[in-house]
Write a protein that binds this DNA or RNA. Sequence first.
DNA 1: GTAAATCTTTGACCCAGATCAAGTGGGGTT
DNA 2: AACCCCACTTGATCTGGGTCAAAGATTTAC
Lengths: 247, 247
Amino acid sequence: MNAPNQTISPNCSDCPIRHRAVCARCEADELQTLEAIKYYRSFEAGQTIIWSGDKMDFVGSVVSGIATLTQTMEDGRTQMVGLLLPSDFVGRPGRSGTPYDVVATTDITMCCFRKKPFEQMMANTPHVAQRLLEMTLDELDAAREWMLVLGRKTAREKIASFLSILGRRDASLKQDGNSGPMVFDLPLTREAMGDYLGLTLETVSRQMTALKKDGVITLDGKRRVTVPDMSRLMEEAGDDADGGVFA
Amino acid sequence: MNAPNQTISPNCSDCPIRHRAVCARCEADELQTLEAIKYYRSFEAGQTIIWSGDKMDFVGSVVSGIATLTQTMEDGRTQMVGLLLPSDFVGRPGRSGTPYDVVATTDITMCCFRKKPFEQMMANTPHVAQRLLEMTLDELDAAREWMLVLGRKTAREKIASFLSILGRRDASLKQDGNSGPMVFDLPLTREAMGDYLGLTLETVSRQMTALKKDGVITLDGKRRVTVPDMSRLMEEAGDDADGGVFA
DNA sequence: GTAAATCTTTGACCCAGATCAAGTGGGGTT
DNA sequence: AACCCCACTTGATCTGGGTCAAAGATTTAC
């Protein structure tokens, strides 16, 4: 269906992901194999990277761009079950398929490893399996936190939770020393936000407007968000002050 | 807070969990250590096994009884994020705490391993880490499937999804050759079901009545459910015929 | 530069599920 | 047997968010 570009790159120095993903250890001696089997792959905005049920012959990390994990019912209702931002890992070592679609929301580049050799390497390198386990536990925590959002929060709280998570993710990526107001771009349309939050796009729009009116956020255009007071936003989200995990 | 009973048992022959959990391999040579450090722990219905935020110094499997994983907001809204049935594994190797409460719903017995030695063993036994990873991926799939339920399904579909998952879990435990109608007991109150499904207890009750009236299920008392036609139930749940994963 | 296609906002109305408020019924205890 | 305690059911009403519809506002295409 999609014919992705595919380029081989000899080293990982341009991966901005050392600190989170597996790729983080590309230079460790025992992982030189990773370096050897690594390749880059790009997809255009809107392309489906993997279809639900398809076999997936690689694992990898997002280098730049954004993708979503979505589940769809026969009648078209869809729920986003994950958001892949730069540095996030995709892949299910030991599994052949995915139970959800992976869709590029923007143009996206990924750093990939073919699954077979990756798994082989995993079997020989205990700490990689442990690292993978750790990442998977993070994702599980995030998914469970999101269950609370979906099951029990109001529309306003859902939007605030989303913005809060996104803002924190964004800040940690660009290593903001959280000084001053937080500014970031929404990587999703109102409809995609609705699919993440279990809301309609109209409700998303209305609640964004309401948060703006109440001074919780500022909008510059439709997509650029400024949060003058993070703790205020988290209060709106109904979170404990400490905030939560989200990958 | 809770002072659980604690008994040391010399072997795992009474664990009905060989096929799923880590304990499954108690007899493998390389895992004799597991046998050595194993112990049993019992909790009464209603006891909180671990409080959110507490450190958790063990991992283990449920031998008998049922426990729930729940998250609670300051104002008391709660969302169940997982259900632990016999054979399910609890624990976060490499993590010190849990981000949710683990509560015994019935009297429960668990087969536990102290975390330190368990982790040590994990580091030396690659396939255990891989097994753990696999189990965690299962849980992640289940959590994501549940996100679709919470975010996009109607009350009736939620109830049907819950019954369908529970019925299948129950059948696989007692190795039913799915012959004839499926019968099982609800391990949860209407309120707990509501907390799982993001509904109020009244809505749960009403939808149960409606499913009964429409012949999708039969109720014997409040808790015993009969499903005459499983595919009918799954249709009500809005699932693809193949059904989904749930741990 | 204008047209077409999106994405977003806003308004009017409606309905599924929440909330509030009585009941019902079974299982213990004395 | 009479009482209590809980889990559960059922009814009446309310409301947050969905649905339907119609404009803006941006971006893309030619």
